[in-house]
Design a protein around this nucleic acid. Sequence first.
DNA 1: GGATTATACCTCGATATTCTAGGTATTGCA
DNA 2: TGCAATACCTAGAATATCGAGGTATAATCC
Lengths: 114, 114
Amino acid sequence: MAAKKKSLEHASLLVLGLLAAEDMYGYQMIVELERRSDHTFQMKEGTLYPILHGLEQEGAVEAYEQQAPTGRMRRYYHLTRKGQALLHTEAEAWRSYAHGVDAVLHGILPLAEA
Amino acid sequence: MAAKKKSLEHASLLVLGLLAAEDMYGYQMIVELERRSDHTFQMKEGTLYPILHGLEQEGAVEAYEQQAPTGRMRRYYHLTRKGQALLHTEAEAWRSYAHGVDAVLHGILPLAEA
DNA sequence: GGATTATACCTCGATATTCTAGGTATTGCA
DNA sequence: TGCAATACCTAGAATATCGAGGTATAATCC
């Protein structure tokens, strides 16, 4: 009974999280997110690109173009120091939010898996 | 460094979660949510009441009025069987969503607390 | 007694976030 | 040649939540 594909609610946090490990280009992030979340969510292009542009304007990421082996141009994004700080803040907020929800739901579900 | 009060993103799930344990009235839910989440979030009245009315219309909750010891009228909500099913579905969706986010963020934060 | 605070309910319009649905262009494959 | 996958983008719609107001009663303080 796999969960349905869910919409996102912390899109920018997830983008920052991805970029913490390595530089990525947009399309790659969409594929990676679906893979890493075990197909739980699927970021839409209409969500991702505006977020990337916003993060770039804030100075949280920096973009550069690079040619793929195929010859196509890709726009890679790199996490700046400012972006790392932002990620840290948002990740912490996520932690306490998730904690809070779990506290309210405590005992509702039979702890599906380990 | 207590986290800032965060807005909600799963308001109806939290309402259902509260009602799983006992019947409650609106104002009480707001107070309880803040308490149980260790002051992490604070449901706004403008969020809660429309949700309660919606859940009632769906048949997920049933309302009844009851006089408080003070003499004031309170509108209590009771989780129906349908509401329990809804809660279960949403709680499971939450679990996999949270799992997915954690998978992406894995290793970002130094596991603040136990 | 009068004022203020806490309780208790409600709604409307604004804001924020994400999605839908389109668009462009290149590459690879059948 | 034509179609699918890759790769980028945007405008407007839809949804969720909040802010700020309203009403009314009960309790507390001066």
